[in-house]
């Protein structure tokens, strides 16, 4: 019965029923057995779409730019899906998600599907759920999948294992000499965008970036691709077509060089690793709850706390094996 209804849902989603697709995404948001079942089925068919990651500091204009890029991709005939990751409130765990609002103009376009997902405490926000959603959209035949990250946290770097094309969005005056590009980001981008080039100082930022990219150590990716720089103004709609041209160029490059497949593999490996982590951490949680008495005692004296940790890990591992 359950299996049958999931089957029906899959079938309807495949036929383009948006409601069914929306439901499927909910079902795979948490790694339940159903989620596993669905993902197992779909992953086989996935692997065709270009996954485009937008990263960069909050406020750089990622969502606004993504909205423009969606429009341009649509005009080129692609079906576009968006996974928009928004921060959660650290207090209540609730959230008000705002990325969608900037892309809402596409809401009534049947060729665009936007799904928001809060970080739910995951640093950087690139959760198993986000990766699973990419898999589903890919299997459902979306040509381009845009992933917008929250743009904070070191695990932001995970995006390189999740996306084919990484767009690092920055803006003029976001701090001297591209301070905005925090540690690590200079090494990961396939395309650097100086957004808000309607503002003064855009040229300065662009020149600095260009200079940096000409350095041998950061000016080349493992695949051999040389990162590119594009200036845009998302509000005025300037530079969007050039950006999309480069996105396409990168995609062709990846496909011709065989790197597109390797990127899909990397994404799945990351997903597997993250799933494993969350399974384990769930077991640690369980073990933790069961051992509260013991832990409290150790904590009181302060003695043997590291041994306790080891014990906790062992108990969790045993549970996993049960």
């Amino acid at each position: 019965m359950e299996a049958a209804s999931i089957e029906a849902l899959l079938e309807r989603a495949e036929k383009g029923n948006l409601r069914a697709l929306g439901r499927l995404l909910t079902l795979i948001e948490h790694p339940t057995p159903h989620a596993i079942q669905i993902l197992e089925r779909l992953a086989k068919r996935a692997g065709r779409a270009q996954v485009i990651g937008f990263t960069g500091i909050p406020g750089a204009g990622k969502s606004t730019l993504a909205s423009r890029v969606i429009g341009a991709l649509r005009r080129r005939g692609y079906r576009v899906a968006v996974v928009a990751i928004d921060p959660s409130s650290p207090f209540s765990g609730g959230s008000i998600m705002g990325d969608r609002l900037r892309m809402q103009e596409h809401a009534s376009d049947p060729g665009v599907f936007i799904r928001s997902i809060p970080t739910r405490g995951v640093k950087g926000g690139l959760s198993t759920a986000a990766l699973a959603m990419i898999e589903v959209f890919d299997a459902m035949g979306y040509d381009k999948i845009i992933v917008e990250t929250v743009g904070v946290g070191q695990s932001e770097v995970d995006i390189i294992n999740a996306a084919h094309t990484i767009i690092v969005v920055t803006m003029p005056g976001a701090g001297d000499d591209v301070q905005a590009l925090k540690a690590g980001v200079m090494e990961i981008g396939d395309i650097y965008v100086v957004n808000k080039s309607d503002k003064a100082e855009a040229n300065k930022t662009a020149a600095y970036l260009q200079f940096a990219l000409e350095r041998e150590d950061i000016g080349r990716r493992e695949s051999g691709w040389k990162p590119r720089l594009v200036k845009t103004s998302a509000v005025l709609g300037m530079g969007i077509d050039s950006l999309v041209d480069v996105i396409e160029e990168h995609w062709n490059f990846l496909r011709e060089s065989g790197w597109s497949g390797r990127k899909v593999e990397a994404r799945r490996i990351l997903m597997a690793k993250m799933m494993a982590e969350s399974m384990l951490s769930a077991k640690v949680m369980e073990a933790h709850m069961e051992s509260l008495g013991y832990l409290e005692e150790v904590a009181r004296t302060g003695e043997g706390i590291f041994r306790a940790a080891e014990e906790l890990a062992r108990r969790a591992a045993r549970k996993m094996l049960e």
């Binding site: 008000i96 705002g98 900037r102």
Partner: peptide, 10 residues
């Protein structure tokens, strides 16, 4: 002049 879309603020 273009039109304004309100940024998300809450």
């Amino acid at each position: 002049y273009g039109v304004y879309v309100e940024p998300p603020e809450y």
